[in-house]
Amino acid sequence: MSHVPEPRLLDVLEGRGATDRAHVDACAQCRARLAEAQAGLALAAGAEVPEPSPVYWESLRRQVSRRVDEESERRPAFWRRVSLGHALAAAAVLAGIATFLPVAGRHPAPLPEPPLPAWSALPPAEEDEGLDVLRAVAPVVADASVPAACGGVAECAVDLSDEESQVLADRLRREIGPGKDL
């Protein structure tokens, strides 16, 4: 007799799979496997994570918000560097085009559009072709800017500012009650 495979035993555990249920009822081995998983489920289901108070959720939200703000402040600096990369790329392309353009007397032909991505929709750093150009032109600048853009820079401090700490302390005092230390 072939036994019920695990994915289908899980269906039985979840109350599905009537055919397999009949097998389990008749088979001591599958019944034991199912009973073990059921007992594991009962144990697992009761193991809750300690629930922080609403004060904690507020502090987590503020810490994330502050770090995102710091990230946002760094980002424009990065975008400016990428723009420099694009500017260098554009200059290189234009220079290349200018080199190969035939001299057309006093009426030079209009320049074709440079094959660059739209300035308003910059690609992610690691997919950015402009960075290869930037690397070729100024490897030191590119190598310094790319890790920063990808989040490779040193981690920000996570501590609250003095003002934020004060707000949190006031909230905690209100929760704990007067006359008690934090």
Binding site: E6, P7, L9, A37, Q38, A39, G40, L43
Partner: peptide
């Protein structure tokens, strides 16, 4: 795959019980 998820969950529950 969904089948792998179900198999892993079934094994996880059994192993959890055995460990405890």
């Amino acid at each position: 795959t969904v089948g792998t998820v179900k198999a892993n969950l079934f094994h996880a529950l059994g192993n959890l019980r055995k460990m405890l």
